Computed example of a mutant assay.
Amino acid sequence: MTYANGTARRIAGLTTLPLAFALLTGCGTEAEPSGKAAPSSAPSASADAANGPAPATGPVRSVGAKGSPCALPLTLDAPADWKAAPVKLEGDVAAAIGAQGTVTLACELDARPSGATGFLRVWTGALPGEDPRAALEAFVADVPDEKREQVVYREVKAGALPAVEVTYLGTSSITEETEKERALAVGTPSGVVVIVVDAMDDAEHDAVLPAYERAKQSVRTTQ
């Protein structure tokens, strides 16, 4: 999600903080838009929101189960040539950067080893029974200095599990740049998991979407 023009920028410096981090199609119901429409010259969040791109193909690695790079409340498939790494929070600064809404940054899936750019980032909650829609709304709302337009929440499937997805346009009040944003919230017995497309610009965002769609379709619980 956008933080002064992209969560990617919010997180980009984490590995340089000395004590901060040790590494870092579904079937929808009727859409529920909110907010004002963006100007016609702005990118569109809704053009591909309901039907994302085809899932990525090729070798995959399973992430989330015990023994995988990240232990999570759910398991998903990521491209085999992406790097998966847990995010370990240390200190007040790191904890503040790595907390958003009711969830905490837990795992980073990095496309750079494949020659591409962009990330999928996985955030986990610790409130059993929390409503995924409420958690996702809190996640989106907890971004300072951002104007949100074309906000659409949809009930979807993550694998066989019910989930909620959000797409919107986020405009930084600092840089005044507008970017596409997309995230998915899934309920698990131990709390909500939020999977986020993290990119520096719309081209990078669109390049990550096939991997996001594959992750979304492959979700299964590990508990």
Rank of each mutant, 00 (worst) to 15 (best):
G28E: 13
V122G: 05
A4P: 03
T171S: 07
P189A: 01
R182G: 01
P144I: 09
A71Y: 02
P128D: 04
G35L: 07
R61D: 05
S190W: 08
V140T: 11
L109W: 08
E130G: 07
I174V: 14
L74P: 01
S218K: 10
P59C: 00
A215Q: 08
S68P: 00
V186S: 01
V63M: 00
C27Y: 13
K147E: 14
E137V: 14
A31H: 08
T75W: 00
P69R: 01
W82P: 00
V192L: 04
F139R: 10
E176P: 04
T221N: 13
Y3H: 15
L89Y: 00
E155I: 00
P39M: 10
T15F: 13
R214L: 14
L209R: 11
P189S: 03
Y212G: 08
Y212V: 02
T16I: 12
V63L: 07
S40D: 10
G35R: 03
V208G: 02
D201I: 09
E204T: 09
R121N: 15
Q100S: 11
V151F: 13
T188C: 07
V164N: 00
V87M: 08
A94E: 09
S172N: 05
K83E: 03
P162M: 01
E165I: 08
A199R: 05
V151R: 15
P132V: 11
I97F: 08
L23P: 10
T25A: 13
A47K: 14
I11G: 00
P59K: 10
A56N: 09
R121D: 15
G129I: 11
K157S: 11
D92Y: 01
A134Q: 15
V164E: 06
S46A: 09
A185T: 05
I97R: 06
D206W: 13
T221R: 15
Q223Y: 14
T222F: 09
D92E: 13
T2A: 15
E204K: 05
A20S: 02
A99C: 05
K147G: 14
A163C: 03
V219R: 03
V208T: 05
A38P: 05
T15A: 15
Y153P: 01
S190A: 12
S172P: 01
G28Y: 11
Y153K: 00
